[in-house]
């Protein structure tokens, strides 16, 4: 595999150069806040490559918190009254700079939902197809990172087009796909790294993986039946402190549930797709008032069962979690997916 060397002196220039062919997205510090998030980079703005985890995940680049899907007019004097039309969208190439390897791996999980043999969500799929993921390896995983035990890891290449590794004065850029090579070329970074680069990357990878302190196991969850886990006795305890705020689902790179709403102003309006959460009672309540997931225990169970069991069974895959640790960090009452997973795997 080809490795390119990018001297940090050439970093800003390359990023700038690539703008002529790509819309750029990257982590930026949110103004007056002490966290960063993924955003489209304005002219002149650079991705913050020192950002540890962004507060929310970069899933928003293809799955915005709110997205207009269609527009309509309810003006009866118009020919197209009450007819839905899809607005023109910009699916020109996007480069996502500095995405963490596990966040890119999360895209592969979410893809199973939005890109199926029978149906294709054009909004997600077209945005995804436009993306080139220029990931940044995590040299020093956080205390909450457990990505090595979720089939991902700090140097995971599975969702990436390029893996950047910070070597101090320069980056090594491991070229994973053609798309990745095209981006590096557009940025003008073409200096071959030479012998030994792959070896150095491997050493950093081993070191980073060793720094990860916690792991989870789900081997026994696979063998248990849905009904056995659903009826287990630990759900009351697991849900006890939860206030159903939904934060865990909003920050998660693999949570994909959404709502569809119409917003009308005067005689024109839009139909939007908006993030939703299984933690809210409104998510499932019937018009009759009957709610199949009436209590918070039902809803907490749904979140963990979906992530750690239903997904696994439906797609014959691992779990619907890449171990980024965001939900653990953000939960106001310290509910920890690692502990719940342990109960389920017990």
């Amino acid at each position: 595999m080809k490795v390119i060397k990018i001297d940090k002196k050439h970093w800003a220039g390359g990023i700038e150069k690539s703008r002529s062919a790509y819309r750029l997205f990257g982590p930026v510090m949110v103004e007056n806040k002490d966290f960063s998030d993924f955003e489209e980079l304005n002219a002149g703005e650079m991705p913050d490559m020192t950002a540890t985890d962004t507060r929310t995940s970069p899933k928003s680049i293809c799955f915005p918190p709110e997205e207009v899907m269609m527009e309509y007019s309810t003006d009866e004097t118009r020919d197209d009254c009450n007819l839905m039309r899809v607005p023109v969208k910009d699916y020109s190439p996007r480069a996502v700079i500095g995405i963490r390897p596990y966040d890119a791996a999360a895209y592969l999980i979410v893809k199973k939902n939005f890109d199926t043999p029978e149906y294709r969500d054009p909004y997600w799929c077209d945005a995804y197809a436009a993306c080139t993921f220029i990931g940044l390896a995590v040299n020093e995983p956080s205390r909450l990172d457990f990505s090595t035990s979720t089939n991902s890891g700090p140097f995971d290449e599975s969702g990436l087009d390029v893996l950047l590794v910070d070597m101090g004065g320069h980056y090594f850029a491991k070229v994973i796909t053609e798309k990745g090579a095209a981006y590096l070329k557009a940025a003008g970074w073409e200096e071959a790294a030479g012998d030994g680069a792959e070896q150095q990357i491997e050493e950093l990878k081993v070191k980073a993986e060793r720094m990860i302190q916690t792991t989870i196991s789900f081997d026994r969850i696979k063998e248990k039946s849905i009904m056995e886990l659903h009826g287990a006795d630990f759900w009351d305890d697991a849900a006890f402190a939860c206030i159903n705020c939904g934060t865990c689902t909003y920050v998660c790179p693999t949570c994909w549930c959404f709502d569809i709403q119409d917003e009308t102003k005067g005689k024109s309006g839009v139909r939007i797709k908006a993030w939703d959460s299984c933690m809210y009672p409104l998510f499932t309540i019937h018009t009759t008032g009957h709610n199949p997931r009436e209590t918070k225990v039902h809803r907490v169970r749904q979140r963990f069962m979906h992530k750690l069991k239903y997904y696994m069974d439906k797609y014959e895959d691992g779990i619907m979690c890449v171990g980024c640790g965001r939900c653990v960090r953000s939960c106001p009452v310290n509910i920890d997916i690692r502990r719940v997973c342990q109960s389920m795997n017990g």
């Binding site: 029978e118 969500d121 849905i226 569809i260 299984c278 998510f283 749904q302 997904y311 069974d313």
Partner: peptide
């Protein structure tokens, strides 16, 4: 079955019962 639904083709996640999506 009748569950609350939105998309109707298995993507919005609303109508799940276990690993089945009632709409799809």
């Amino acid at each position: 079955l009748e569950n609350r639904m939105k998309c109707g083709f298995g993507m919005c996640g609303r109508c799940g019962i276990g690993k089945e999506l009632v709409c799809k």
